[in-house]
Design a protein around this nucleic acid. Structure first.
Lengths: 203, 203
DNA sequence: ACCTGAACACCGTTCAAGT
DNA sequence: ACCTGAACACCGTTCAAGT
């Protein structure tokens, strides 16, 4: 607590952690370069020693978000190995739970807070790795005849879009009450995934 | 040009129009209460006579965005009356074109810029009317056997989620190059819509 | 090399005052 | 009723200076 934070040691990661905490505790509206610096216990201009601007810091926070999402999906996958249909459903559910439980970091990752004029290679790498996780599941489903024959990455994109869109609309409170009053969101998700499946998917 | 803008007459709508223009010309990063006031030619505190805070102004701008989206979808619908399959494809395309051509107002409408602690009745009304447009098309498709039997509003939600998710991922540059290099976005959209259809949908 | 503090041009919001 | 202008507490970014 009372440590000298001159030569902090790992201020860069401390700033990323502070940003993640602010998103979880106070929400996206409170995420500023200065609030992140305050939470990390340094002056408001200290972050510029490690990030060239606010966008670069947000890219690093988004990258950490993708690492957490990747981890959740990987766990969901491993819990149902050799049952690709269940893996697909578990991935969809894990994606939805991540979005609902960690709303604000999910929004930072996907809601254009990160304007991508620059490249951010670590961000691109983990987001592509996440997509490849889905491609693997979709491929396994196709081999078992659960999903129809089609270019695997095209089908994976369609399924990602389906789940992502449903979750995004839910976060924005755009899903009609005539639907939600009769069907909990988990059921809506299952219904949407079943549009792609040749055999009924269940939980 | 050189009019007295004391007692502007319709400053409220002038501010909304100014906000829409800023989104189209300068982008979401430039949308501030003060920039909107500047473009409308009034002082930075004048908007408070018509909007209780920035969120309420953004809600009004989002409402105008939904009116424009509604109008595009309605036009797409009327261009293919009595051919529900084509209506569905045309709606999906119109939704995608709106998002790509008017990126920043689309983002304001859907990307959580509008934190919905308050209600904004006009916003809710036009967004529900837009959903009902889709419900009508889906219902017509079901009657013709193009879409499978299922609760119509559930199916409409699934299709909206599919198109919205695909478009959102495209805006965030999250769609893999292994997909986009082989398939233009229009084709990916058609592929995703065909997941729902019992007969092949075309343009 | 890493961090501070003053400075600058912005921002949202409030409020007394002007017409 | 509608709008202005000063004021306040924020924000991102820069830069000279400190250790």
């Amino acid at each position: 607590m009372a440590e000298s934070n001159y030569h902090h040691g790992d201020l860069k990661n401390a700033l990323i952690a502070a940003g993640v905490e602010i998103l979880a505790r106070e929400g996206i509206a409170s995420l500023s370069l200065r609030s992140v610096a305050r939470r990390a216990g340094v002056s408001h201009s200290a972050p510029y020693a490690h990030f060239s601007d606010k966008q670069t810091l947000i890219a690093a926070i988004s990258t950490e978000g993708f690492r957490r999402l990747y981890s959740k999906l990987d766990t969901a996958l491993n819990a149902h190995s050799a049952e690709p249909g269940r893996q697909l459903v578990a991935c969809g559910q894990a994606y939805m739970r991540f979005a609902l439980n960690e709303r604000d970091i999910f929004k930072v990752m996907f809601s254009g807070v990160l304007e991508q004029e620059k490249e951010y290679p670590e961000f691109v790498e983990i987001s592509q790795a996440t997509f490849q996780l889905l491609v693997k599941v979709v491929d396994a489903c196709q081999e078992k005849g659960i999903l129809r024959p089609a270019p695997t990455d095209l089908l994976a994109t369609a399924i990602w879009g389906q789940v992502h869109g449903l979750v995004s609309l839910a976060l924005e409170k755009q899903i009609s009450h005539t639907v939600l009053d009769l069907h909990p969101l988990d059921e809506v998700l299952l219904f949407t995934l079943n549009q792609f499946s040749q055999v009924p998917l269940t939980l």
